[in-house]
């Protein structure tokens, strides 16, 4: 138990940092990085679960983490692509402001 404790604490810290970054940062790129921190924390927790109480590591959480990494990679790529296009169009990559704006008059 104590062998996995530092990892568990690190996972919790990463998750807290990621959540804070997602909520507090305005720039899109920082939000994307915060998402990755958050995801890293969750994956580390799966690692802790895999090690806990077993002599040999459980393989299922490892498979889950690998799949999760692929999903997180896809999400990051999509978010970066959207942010890049937004920057090309408007010259700034921020989603703050004009929360209620709908489509412009079409």
């Amino acid at each position: 138990m104590s062998a996995t404790l530092p990892y568990g604490v690190t996972a919790a810290a990463l998750i807290a940092l990621g959540l804070f970054g997602l909520v507090a940062q305005a720039a899109v790129l920082r939000k994307i990085l915060a998402c990755n921190l958050l995801g890293g924390g969750v994956f580390l927790l799966f690692g802790v679960v895999a090690r806990r109480g077993a002599t040999a590591a459980d393989a299922v959480p490892q498979a889950i983490v690998i799949t999760g990494l692929v999903v997180a990679f896809a999400a990051t790529a999509l978010a970066v692509a959207l942010a890049l296009r937004l920057h090309q169009i408007t010259g700034a990559a921020t989603i703050a402001g004009e929360p209620e704006s709908g489509p412009r008059g079409e």
């Binding site: 959540l19 999400a75 412009r104």
Partner: peptide, 18 residues
């Protein structure tokens, strides 16, 4: 591909990711 779309869909993506 309008800027307002990218903004609102990015916000949607962040909510979905959290």
């Amino acid at each position: 591909g309008r800027a307002s779309q990218f903004r609102s869909e990015l916000r949607y993506l962040f909510f979905a990711l959290i």
